[in-house]
């Protein structure tokens, strides 16, 4: 009894030590990244950066709000040097909470178009996602489709599906519409859209596409890169779904398709801000950008980088031209409006 207890104790101490070791390998130069993105491609790029510069990249991932809250709580003692978040609105929130610092880098200014970075240079967009209409070609003629706003018309009653209002993609879409059409119009849009829903919103983006193929709805509002990812799914039935539906870029003749970015900023209290800038510059470089685009079905922000074949097959599109920081400015009102019109 006693022997086995001692054995257990020694064994567990060893395990704990091993665990600690695995948790924190150390290197002379390192930066800590708080990232909401956690794709295998990202890790691949981080490793590449490490190889090229010898700067170790430590990552803590979590969702945007947890990371921002943590950064806020840690104050000037934070270990984080870089904050990466998949939504411009949330980066704006971090900026307004005074968690970021301005960066003056000609490399970044050259690589990233002005509307995809913060006007005070607090954050820099790295990849773009477009929120589009996905439809079933048997039941929808693309000529029926035009804009987001048109979906509120009576002929779409019970034919539209999208995920919940709690989802950041929808919140940002609403925020962009508030900027473009004003709050009253935007609210009317939200109310009209909610009235045309084929079901109470549930599930993730992929589920919306599946619901369209299933026949529950005809048109889904969803992000392009999920279609890309479904085409490359390990489940061949998901591939089937992705191959059945078609992509439509709305508002091409008006305000443009809603686009959001994943963006990075250097934290206000970064201990390694130079390395942090180097890291963001690396992510905006042509090498990294082509990787982002090809492996994760996102659009690169770098104008010189070719887009992935699949994305190219859907054609070019005009994006909303608003500066993305407005997504953050209107995100709260967007949420309130969606609650008020009963968009679940």
């Amino acid at each position: 009894m006693r022997k086995s207890l001692i054995f257990l104790l020694v064994f567990s101490v060893m395990l704990v030590l091993a665990g600690c070791q695995l948790g924190t390998s150390s290197s002379d130069r390192s930066i800590t990244v708080y990232s909401e993105r956690h794709y295998d491609t990202d890790q691949y790029l981080f490793d590449l950066f490490e190889q090229e510069t010898g700067i170790e990249v430590r990552v803590i991932d979590g969702n945007a709000d947890q990371l921002i809250n943590r950064l806020d709580n840690e104050g000037e003692d934070t270990e984080a040097d870089v904050l990466i978040i998949a939504d411009a609105g949330r980066l704006h929130r971090a900026k307004s909470m005074d968690l970021l610092q301005p960066v003056h880098s000609d490399v970044l200014f050259n690589n990233i178009p002005a509307n995809y970075r913060d006007e005070d240079n607090m954050w820099f967009g790295l990849t773009k996602r477009a929120r589009v209409l996905v439809y079933h070609p048997d039941r929808v003629d693309p000529s029926e489709l035009s804009t987001y706003e048109a979906l509120t018309e009576p002929q779409f009653k019970g034919r539209v599906v999208t995920r919940t209002s709690t989802n950041i993609y929808n919140q940002s879409l609403m925020a962009s519409l508030i900027e473009i059409m004003g709050e009253t119009e935007a609210k009317a849009f939200a109310a009209g859209l909610t009235a045309n829903f084929a079901r109470t919103p549930a599930g993730n983006d992929r589920d919306q596409a599946k619901y369209v193929v299933e026949g529950g709805a005809d048109i889904a509002i969803m992000n392009t890169y999920y279609i890309g990812r479904m085409m490359n799914s390990s489940d061949r039935f998901e591939q089937e779904v992705a191959n059945t539906v078609k992509v439509f870029f709305p508002n091409q003749n008006t305000s443009g398709t809603h686009v959001n970015v994943s963006a990075a900023g250097v934290t206000k209290h970064a201990n390694h801000s130079e390395d942090a800038i180097k890291f963001i510059e690396f992510l905006s470089s042509e090498t990294a950008q082509s990787k982002f685009a090809s492996a994760n079905y996102e659009y690169p922000v770098h104008v010189n980088v070719e887009i992935d074949d699949l994305l190219a097959s859907w054609g070019d599109f005009t994006a909303q031209s608003i500066p993305l920081s407005v997504l953050g400015e209107h995100s709260y009102r967007a949420a309130v409006i969606m609650d008020e019109v009963g968009w679940e």
Binding site: D65, T166, I168, Q171, P201, G203, S331, Y332, E344
Partner: peptide
């Protein structure tokens, strides 16, 4: 998307910030 309290706590934190 079942709107109960734990959902609400996260929602207030995340969406409403």
């Amino acid at each position: 998307n079942v709107r109960v309290f734990s959902f609400a706590i996260f929602d207030a934190w995340e969406r409403l910030g």
